[in-house]
Every structure is written in C-alpha cells, then in structure tokens.
Design a binder for these strands. Sequence first.
DNA 1: TATCATCCTCTTGA
DNA 2: ATCAAGAGGATGA
Length: 291
Amino acid sequence: MTETIRLAECEPLDLDATLGCGQAFRWQRAGDRWEGVVDGRFLRLRQEGNLLHYAGAGESFVRHYLALDLDFDHVLGSIDRDPVMRTAIERCYGLRVVRQPFFECLLSYLCATNTNIPAVRRRVEALSGQYGEPIANAGQTRSFPSPESLQDASEADLRDCRLGYRARYARAAIDRFRDDGPRMAEIPSLSHDEARRRLIALPGIGPKAADCVLLYALGHLDAFPVDVWIHRILRRHYLPELGDSPLSPSRYEAARAFGRSRFGQHAGYAQVYLFSMRARLSHEMGETDAG
DNA sequence: TATCATCCTCTTGA
DNA sequence: ATCAAGAGGATGA
C-alpha cells in the first residue's frame, strides 16, 4: 500500500460491506485487505478507520470507483423511510454502490441468471483467466476481457468457463457488440428507460439483469433490481399481498415499481442495503444464504 | 396476457 | 463416497 486517502466526515465508507456484498464479482479478501481488478487495473485496498490505503491506481480512479464524491448522507437520508430501512442503514452504514465498467457488468449479470454469487464469481474469474489481458505486476491476475478479446471464444469455449446454457446467450450478446458496437456504446448515455429497453433486448438479459446493469454500471441510482431475496424481503416487510408464488413478469414489475416509488431517486441504494441484510430480514423458513 | 417447463452448475443433505 | 433434491432468471411454447 503506497498511498492513503483520509476519508472526510462526509465520506463514510464500509469497505468490507461494499466489496463483499456481491455487487461486483472480482474482489477477494487477502488477509486484512481487498484485491480486485477494475477496468484493467489490479487494485489493492485496505481500510483502517477513516484511512483508506490503496495501490494499483490513482486517487481519482479509486475515489470515482467507490463513489466517494456522492452526497452520501443526502442519499441515505432520502431512503430512510421506515424502521426496516433504518435498521439496514444502521447495520451497513458506509456501504456504497461501486461504479462498474459497463461491458464487464453486463456479462457478469448475464452469468448471474438462475445461479448464486459464488458460481458467478467462478464464471467471471474463468472468463478473465482465459480471455483477459495480463496486468503488469499482478501475477497471474488478468483483466476482464473486452468484447474484442472474446470474439474468438466459441459457445463451447464459454461453456468451459462454466457458463452452462448461458454460453449461447453470452456468445450472442458478444456478437451484438461486434456487429452493432456504436449502438451498444450509446447505452451508457441514454435515459434510464431507454437504456433499460436496449438492455432487455439483448440475449440473456431480462428485467432483473438489466436493472443490475442500470444500477451498478450506468449510474441510474433509481434502478431497483428484484431478485428472490429482495422479493422475500418485500413480501415479509412491505408487500404481503405479493404472496408466495414465483416472480412472474407482472409480479416483478409490481415489486420494482413499489421499490422505486417508496424509496425514490436513490431506490437502488435501498435495494443494496436490504440485500445486504437478507439473512436477517428474510428468515422465513430456514433459508440459507447462497452468497 | 400469463403460466410453465427447460436450461446448467453448484451446494446441501440423505 | 455417491447421488438426488433444490436454488436461482431468461426464454419460448
């Protein structure tokens, strides 16, 4: 660790919660620090109270990735609307939504359908190991591959990276980046609704994955992804009328709309805080946390 | 328009 | 040790 950021009073951070909550898949705890790859850089981070030690990138890169510029108390204040949320905020205060690279985030959440967090991590690591670029002074660690680096990967190759039936969708999505690159590159600059439509139009990307990309990569903090955990929590604490039938498209939309209207322009932060409390907030029938 | 079976990998429990 | 059951979203019938 070569450099240090002294976190100001208005820049609260809980690094463990932020990197360990399952929003980004390449972080690993190594003793008292975290190691991960972001946008081709091998980052090492360690938090010691209000000191954030870092190496592998410049201060502005680290600040931007961790969204230290965010008006944090304003954001949390805006979602602090009920006792459940208040508890989540108290337990995870300093948890932040990081700013992930678009393509990596898209493929990661394509790999995250119908599966759990550890499996996604293995897929992302396999893709990086096979097709990513080496990084100076990072040992065997490689970057997450670009669309260009993945052009040579066949569907079978992607299956070898444990994608399973998702390999076909991943291959087709990568093809879109090759064949329609400029249009894909527009997505980050579009409005929430328009970007969402374009994302859902991609093979293997449905409403949930699209909402994750909107929130974790495109900066739409009002996105509210609903996975089974959020669905359980909403059912238990907010919307008992959701019942316990599976999450159909209409039910998904109802849950999403509820989250967005209740928590407002930073609903995505509410989602992340609720998700981080999933074990405590959803104990209905001995469910175990898969991630 | 809404359900429902299918896809695959991994974990858990028998 | 081996294997069946189950978890988890997108798709297409």
